[in-house]
Simulated scan of single mutants.
Amino acid sequence: MTNPEAFIASGRRTVDLERKAVDALHNRIDNHFADACQRMLACTGRVIVVGMGKSGHIGRKIAATLASTGTPSFFVHPAEASHGDMGMITSNDIVLALSNSGNTSEVVTLIPLLKRLGIPLISMTGNNDSTLARASNAHLNVSVEKEACPLDLAPTSSTTATLVMGDALAISLLEARGFTAEDFAFSHPGGSLGRRLLLKVSDIMHTGDRIPMVREGTSLSKALLEITGKGLGITAVCDDNQKVIGVFTDGDLRRALDQNIDPRNSVIDDVMTRNCKTVRDNILAAEALHIMDEYKINALICVDEDNHAIGAINMHDLLKAGVV
């Protein structure tokens, strides 16, 4: 039975070899890379990624990454393309072809068809002199000195290098497009990520009669009843025009009691927090969460552009909505 040290040594050797393969890419991010980015950015259609075998698996991931970061893309199996799926590719598209050897027959077979349609071809290969590399409008060198496989046969270091080069393309295009977190959210509407990036304060805040609110000059005891009745741990203190001039929270109450203030004989003006933190209803709920975390508060009043109270939100609302 192989001892643990052998497994550890093998694993570390694999990581070292693949790390070297990735390090070698640094100097290959050059004018060829920039040309590929410019061509993909100018494409009015989709980026069609093709590749066979392990290159195909990597190609599917690259296509998914491009699509989720603002560059419309999908994967087409090159063998299927020769049997009808070429109809999925239009003259407005651009093809990104992956092949470590650069001579994969199923991929090379597509070259005359792409040329006839006038479709630009970008390739990633490990051989600058290969058929695919020479036929490409832009070629990205992803060659590796050695596969991590001790037989130097199983695609390991080469697939890692190709994947990293694909990520480099995707992120460069993302930045060039000015792709935002909200844009990203529309590609990821499901799960907690979608909730964090799509949900706005207006979607979950309490409005109308559910807003905890008292007028300046209100007795502290009545303000406490408002906090208790609305159950958000906060009440806005407003002037006669419903503009927020302060807030009073559970924390303010504890501090007031520490100062021996009598709730029955005090007014809210004496104990409220002025210059309080408020939020607009059009910001992301995740931004409201960040504000709460930063200022160590559990609730916020939502205001319009004129500082009128239009809603309220607390940490429980964010938890319930799955933002936290």
Rank of each mutant, 00 (worst) to 15 (best):
P4R: 13
A6H: 11
A9T: 13
A9Y: 05
V15G: 13
D23E: 09
A24I: 03
H26G: 06
D30S: 04
H32I: 01
H32S: 07
D35Q: 04
D35G: 01
A36S: 06
L41G: 08
G51E: 01
S55Q: 08
G59K: 13
A64W: 10
T65R: 15
S68P: 10
T69G: 14
P72K: 04
P78S: 09
P78L: 06
M86Y: 06
M86W: 04
N92Q: 15
N92S: 15
D93V: 03
V95F: 10
V95G: 00
S99N: 00
S101I: 04
N103T: 05
N103K: 00
E106W: 08
V108A: 05
L110M: 06
L117T: 07
N128C: 14
L132E: 02
L132R: 02
R134I: 13
S136C: 04
V144S: 02
C149P: 04
P150S: 10
L151H: 13
L151R: 13
D152W: 06
L153I: 14
T160K: 12
G166F: 09
L169W: 04
L173R: 08
A176S: 14
R177S: 10
G178W: 13
G178L: 13
E182G: 10
E182L: 15
F184E: 03
F184V: 03
A185D: 00
A185R: 02
I204W: 02
I204R: 03
M205W: 01
D209I: 09
T218V: 11
S219A: 13
L220A: 07
L224F: 14
T228L: 15
L232I: 07
G233R: 05
V237H: 03
C238S: 09
N241V: 11
K243N: 13
V244T: 07
I245H: 05
G246F: 06
G246R: 03
F248P: 04
F248S: 03
D250N: 14
D250S: 15
D252N: 14
L253A: 12
A256H: 04
D258V: 08
N260I: 11
N265A: 12
N265Q: 12
V267F: 08
T273M: 07
N275E: 11
H290G: 10
E294I: 10
E294R: 10
N298G: 15
L300D: 01
L300V: 08
I301D: 01
V303Y: 00
N307T: 03
A309D: 02
A309G: 05
A309N: 01
I310E: 02
A312M: 11
N314Q: 11
L319R: 01
G322C: 10
